[in-house]
């Protein structure tokens, strides 16, 4: 019986990994379908009913394509780039609480792979590593466009990570914890952080768009200016890895936004109708994935609505708007939390 938690963890890891890949695969399909529907088209509908097998066809295509490594490139870094991008993208799913604990045979099994007490810091660390894949890929290609794409990606990520971190500080102040499990658990019964921290939530979502290199902040790819940016020289499954990493990042970002600000696996009023903890846990997973799905839809919705920012506009928004706003958010949150002490000081 000692081994059972470990076996459960292994199963959970495999499940999370598999679901992450599956969601990323079908995000490509969803992206194309949503793009089509928003543009009065139908989208892929030839492979299987409603084109449901399209991602498989795309994967086969990616694998069958000719593998090209430019002779002027640094071969090992060239291969390392997409591998690193995909690796870091997959690593973030570890700290996200996918649901409440399952209780099987009197034992409690958490639906979170690992509850780090500094989960937020871990998340930020891994997300920051994500830029290395793009940077290395863009630099190792030895191509001017790729290099520009890589530089843009890195400077963009660094700029927006500041605002993102500052917006999270206000959240940490109100919740008083760095553990994602506690943050999710504290939001039960409709006390979502979104209502406590609306400005922080907005800043975080904007920064999440920038961190995942999604439109309107997809300056690293920028087909029209940089011919694909950091992945210009990539072909075959290495290109697939880069694209796949982007979709995994989107999935994880949606999960993080849902956990931080939209209650995670919590849904108000469900506890009144369902009392069995296992069923509650299962429903929690369902709600979590519903929120994530909406998040992914929102990412795509925005992508097909808003045009790309110009580079100076991007930097202006990041440094001159989002960072001051998030600092203001911290100050306002702090003042609100200390309001009794401040009142006591002045009234006395």
């Amino acid at each position: 019986m000692v081994l059972t938690p470990i076996i459960f963890k292994i199963i959970l890891v495999l499940c999370v990994f598999g679901i992450t890949l599956l969601v990323a695969t079908y995000s490509t399909y969803a992206e194309r379908k949503i793009a089509a529907f928003l543009q009065d088209r139908i989208g892929p509908d030839r492979a299987g009913p409603f084109g449901i097998l399209q991602p498989l066809a795309d994967a086969v295509k990616m694998f069958m394509k000719e593998e090209m490594i430019p002779t002027v490139s640094n071969k090992w870094l060239f291969i390392l780039g997409p591998a690193l991008a995909l690796l870091t993208a997959c690593m973030t799913g570890v700290v996200i609480p996918w649901g409440k604990s399952l209780i099987i045979g009197g034992h409690e099994y958490s639906l979170q792979i690992t509850d780090l007490n500094i989960g937020i810091l871990y998340l930020f660390g891994v997300v920051s590593l994500g830029v290395y894949g793009i940077m290395i890929g863009g630099w190792a290609s030895n191509n001017k466009y790729s290099l520009l794409g890589g530089i843009r990606a890195s400077s963009q990520m660094i700029s927006y990570e500041v605002a993102m971190g500052l917006s999270i500080i206000a959240l940490v102040m109100t919740t008083g914890t760095l553990s994602l499990k506690d943050i999710a658990a504290a939001q039960h019964g409709g006390h979502w952080n979104f209502f406590i921290q609306p400005l922080g939530c907005l800043i975080f979502i904007i920064c999440a768009f920038a961190e995942t290199n999604r439109a309107p902040f997809d300056l690293a790819e920028c087909e029209t200016e940089l011919i694909g940016g950091y992945h210009t020289e990539y072909s075959s499954m290495k290109l697939g890895f880069f694209l796949f990493a982007e979709y995994i990042n989107m999935f994880i970002s949606s999960a993080v936004i849902a956990t931080f600000y939209f209650g995670g696996y919590n849904m108000p009023f469900v506890g009144r109708f369902v009392h069995d903890p296992n069923w509650l846990a299962v429903l929690g997973i369902v709600f979590m994935f519903a929120k994530i799905s909406f998040g992914i839809f929102f990412f795509m919705w925005v992508r097909w609505t808003i045009p790309r920012f110009r580079y100076d506009q991007l930097m202006n928004l990041g440094w001159k708007v989002l960072i001051p706003l998030s600092i203001l958010n911290i100050v306002v949150t702090g003042v609100f939390m200390m309001r009794h002490e401040i009142m006591a000081y002045f009234v006395k």
């Binding site: 529907f37 928003l38 009065d40 088209r41 139908i42 919705w301 097909w304 609505t305």
Partner: peptide, 11 residues
Amino acid sequence: TVSHFFRKKPT
């Protein structure tokens, strides 16, 4: 854009 999402497609 979302109003176009539910529109009848001319395809």
